[in-house]
Design a protein around this nucleic acid. Structure first.
Length: 667
RNA sequence: GCGCCAGUAGCUCAGCUGGAUAGAGCAUCGGUCUUCUAAACCGGCGGUCGCAGGUUCGAGUCCUGCCUGGCGCGCCA
């Protein structure tokens, strides 16, 4: 990781001292940061807990631990405080020098991880709920990579599902279009988009999908057509399947483009149609049957289906068993069945592989995006895919039950290790605040009761929702206006680039700031805000420090790089005594980044990383106002002060980078 | 009916495996730009942590029960 783990060594010192005093019966040592930096840099309340088992006064135990630490390297002092806290202070100049040294690269980890996220139905434009998924997934990917893990990012394309079928029906029945007609529609959309007069074809399909949903509702017998279309799509041949493949490919292009706008990218697009064409399900089916994971139900309402028996509640000790249908009585496999096969493939358990080719409708400048393809249509020189040792599935919380079924599917086959390594990264939904729902859909009529609710569901079918592109457009326009107010003379292309970073930073931060099991009541005004707890606030703090270095360079005639390279020579003790604590607090906060990242990944909770970045930005901004750098006349003090600000700013920039928030050169 | 999640300041939310005086943003009120960029800073106001028991040196945090809201429990995905 490109971070300095200043506290790692000190912590292990602390832990071994505690173990010596406590004996062997201790399995974990709580280590925390004192609430007030005056108390010290690291603390443990462990003596309080040990008092009972050791039958000794907590302060006496704390004192014994403290004694063992006093002469340790890097330690400036140890105190016992309050009811029995052990507080440790570090050597500040040494710490500052270490934090300024070039970071050591993360230790590479041997095993590949797969993260699956985004997974938008390829039948209409992405909406804000999808943005939450993609931002969470991408942030996980960035953090895992920073920790040294090789990560493969998969975006699963459900190109043979009901939603694509619905759009096929809509195009044929409502618009009278065949594949050529759809191609013309795409061409029109691309022209429109090129002229900045609207979105891609996914935006047209957004409206069309809402229309066809209403069309079905008007005459229930039309459902029949839907079922026939879906069957043709799954079967994989004929005009309908060709149209479906075309729709999916075009919409995926739009989604990739949208996600690329906010810095989210993928390695592989596995398609459901290829799980079918490679007969992955048949392979998995035989395995599941062979080990008795599923059985053919002969009675009850699931008669004729292949079902998996599951404990109905999570505890598993209930006598209520529940049958989950895996293969329908008509022989068609359910979504979960295909998902079990897919999950097996991700771990390399299927003994089969896809064929692959580069996805052609959209490319990243520096590398290919690969997609799966039908047997024989791939390229032999593809990189290896799948075969992961751990798999993260980023899917909203409503699918928890189905994710447990998939996990159970592995477990029951004897793949306990892989089942345990199948991690459902669950998060709550994005809904709309009533205010925002009305603002974005002026024709919407809400009842008194609905207006009082904290949030309203988005409905793709009713067209009620916020397209990701529209939100990003609004953010960019607003950031551009804001930037124009600050720097009216800036060249247009630079202003646009900055507005993009600010808009993207605002959006990604907003999607991360809420804990994952909190429903986000999306509010357009809150999401568009650039003040307070937002991405731009954090970006601004980094920009300010960069400007100090620039200005200092201009005034002294010393180059930027030279100024930065001299920083490790700074002496913390040059800081006046009465300001030392204020300065040290900032260093201490900056040094917590590695801890924060580890905790975020372990708990899959990136709101803590967002919160940390905000706190660091707050600390930098406060410091900026209290302690001038350039106007400081005492040179050693100035150097130390700048060194501290640079340490803090680098930590903040790294934290932001892990969240995919880029920092512009100016704001 | 069973399960999962949420309930903390007017609003939106933090509060890590129990630990030092319950925090932040927004809103509101009042101060800071001849100074390294005011997308900033400083201060004021604002709390029966849903309710009731329990566990212990200590509970917003753990246990039990209840109340309110949301979501799951399809031969949909």
């Amino acid at each position: 990781m490109t971070m300095h783990d200043l506290f790692a060594e000190l912590k292990s010192l602390l832990v071994s001292a505690v173990r010596e005093v406590a004996g062997t019966e201790l399995d974990s040592v709580p280590i925390e940061y004192p609430p007030d930096p005056r108390l010290g840099d690291l603390a443990t309340p462990v003596a309080l807990g040990l008092a009972r088992t050791l039958r000794r006064a907590p302060r006496a135990i704390a004192e014994e631990i403290a004694r063992r630490l006093r002469d340790a390297p890097g330690v400036a002092g140890v105190d016992v405080a309050g009811p029995g806290f052990v507080n440790l202070r570090v050597d500040r100049t040494a710490a500052l020098r270490r934090l300024l040294a070039p970071p050591e690269p993360a230790v590479p980890r041997p095993h590949k991880l797969v993260v699956e996220h985004t997974n938008i139905n390829p039948n209409k434009a992405a909406h804000i709920g999808h943005l939450r998924n993609a931002v969470l997934g991408d942030t996980l990917v960035r953090c895992l990579r920073a920790l040294g893990h090789p990560v493969e990012v998969q975006n699963y394309i459900d190109d043979t599902g009901v939603q694509v079928a619905d759009v096929i029906v809509a195009l044929r029945e409502l618009e009278g279009l065949d594949e050529a007609g759809f191609a013309a529609m795409v061409e029109r959309a691309e022209r429109r988009r090129g002229d900045a007069r609207g979105g891609g074809v996914d935006h047209d399909l957004w409206d069309l999908y809402a229309r066809v949903s209403a069309w079905y509702a008007d005459a229930p017998e039309r459902e029949e057509l839907r079922a026939r279309t879906l069957a043709a799509l799954e079967h994989g041949d004929g005009e309908i399947a060709a149209l479906g493949a075309r729709i999916a490919a075009e919409v995926v292009r739009c989604h990739l483009r949208t996600m690329d706008r906010i810095g989210v990218r993928y390695d592989l697009l596995p398609k459901e149609s290829d799980i079918l064409s490679h007969r992955f399900w048949q392979t998995a089916f035989e395995r599941l049957k062979a080990c008795g994971a599923i059985r053919l139900a002969t009675e009850g309402k699931t008669a004729g289906c292949w079902v998996m028996d599951l404990p109905h509640d999570e505890e598993g000790d209930s006598e209520h068993e529940y049958e989950k249908v895996i293969v329908r009585s008509n022989g068609v496999v359910t979504y979960v069945g295909k998902d079990i096969a897919y999950q097996m493939w991700k771990f390399g358990l299927l003994g089969a592989d896809f064929d692959y080719r580069p996805y052609e409708l959209y490319r990243y400048p520096e590398r290919e995006i690969w997609e799966t393809t039908s047997p024989g249509a791939g390229r032999p020189d593809h990189p290896p895919f799948g075969g992961a040792s751990r798999v993260y599935n980023v899917i909203d919380v409503r699918q928890s039950y189905l994710q447990r079924v998939v996990q159970r599917g592995l477990e029951i086959q004897g793949y306990a290790e892989q089942a345990a390594a199948s991690i459902h990264f669950a998060y709550e939904m994005v809904a709309l605040s009533p205010r925002t729902a009305v603002e974005l859909n002026p024709r919407l009529r809400l009842s008194e009761e609905e207006l009082r609710r904290p949030f309203l569901d988005m409905s793709g079918r009713k067209g009620l929702g916020v397209k990701a592109d529209d939100l990003i457009d609004r953010l960019e326009a607003k950031a551009l206006a804001e930037g124009g107010r600050r720097a009216p003379d800036m060249p247009a292309d630079e202003a646009t680039a900055i507005a993009h970073d600010v808009a993207c930073g605002a959006l990604r931060y907003y999607m991360l700031r809420f804990t994952r099991n909190k429903i986000v009541a999306f509010d357009i005004d809150a999401a568009l805000a650039f003040e307070g707890e937002t991405g731009p606030y954090c970006q601004y703090a980094v920009v300010r420090v960069a400007r100090i270095v620039e200005k200092l360079s201009a005034r002294t005639g010393v180059g930027r790089e030279t100024i930065l390279s001299r920083l490790p020579g700074a002496d913390f003790s040059a800081i006046p005594e009465d300001e030392a604590l204020d300065h040290w607090s900032l260093v201490q906060l900056a040094a917590r980044l590695p801890d924060t990242v580890h905790a975020a990944v372990d708990n899959l909770e990136f709101a803590t990383l967002a919160k940390y970045a905000f706190e660091l930005a707050q600390a930098i901004n406060g410091f900026y106002h209290r302690h001038p750098v350039i106007r400081e006349e005492d040179e050693p003090t100035r150097d130390a002060r700048l060194a501290i600000l640079v340490v803090a700013s680098r930590a903040l920039e790294e934290a932001l980078d892990l969240m995919g928030v880029a920092v512009p050169a100016r704001m």
